[in-house]
Amino acid sequence: MSTLETSLQTSAEPLGRNELAALVARDIAPGSFVNLGIGQPTLVSNYLTEEQNITLHTENGMLGMGPEAVGEEIDGDLINAGKIPVTELPGASYFHHADSFAIMRGGHLDICVLGAFQVSAGGDLANWHTGAPDAIPAVGGAMDLATGAKDVFVMMTLLTRDGVSKLVEECTYPLTGVGCVTRVYTDKAVFLTGPDGVRVRETFGCTFEELQALVPLPLTPAAS
């Protein structure tokens, strides 16, 4: 395999889903209040350490959510946003839906981690609707999370199955939120989005130049 050709490249291979989840988990500051979206972002919880003292929020009305419930722990009254039975940790709290979304909208969550169909250069997020005419739209809490959390991290593969970049100049799918995404974790690179444009923090399995060839917008190395 290729040697690490630039200082930005931190892995000889692209990252798998679990490696990416572990990386996101490492980047979450100790003591943070965090909401993990349904799907790939849920994997992040597997890599949070006790020392990090992270409190997980679930939109259906709980702080201090524990791991997925198994066997006799399963309780239909204790589920997460994906409607999967979960457990409660010591110090957990329950609250109604308006309070739960006030926690988001009020800027009290430090980080939410979401999946995405597309992220734009300006940090716009599209993750709720393909826009297909026959699709039944369903939004849930995606717009509230995207708008409310202090930092919005996206986890996704960089390319679609057809090899098209999901990091785009302007989203073509219906938007979830405008200018809300601060970081994009992909199998090939970590991107930082903001007023300075899209910067690349590190690459996996490709050089900065190889990455730039895949993404149809100007990238700058974060180090420069």
Binding site: H97, A98, F101, R105, I136, P137, V139, G140, M143, D144
Partner: peptide
Amino acid sequence: KAGEIELELVPQGNLAERI
């Protein structure tokens, strides 16, 4: 899909706050 039910789709936090 049969056009037999109307849907007003509301972001979840807006739904809660409107209630």
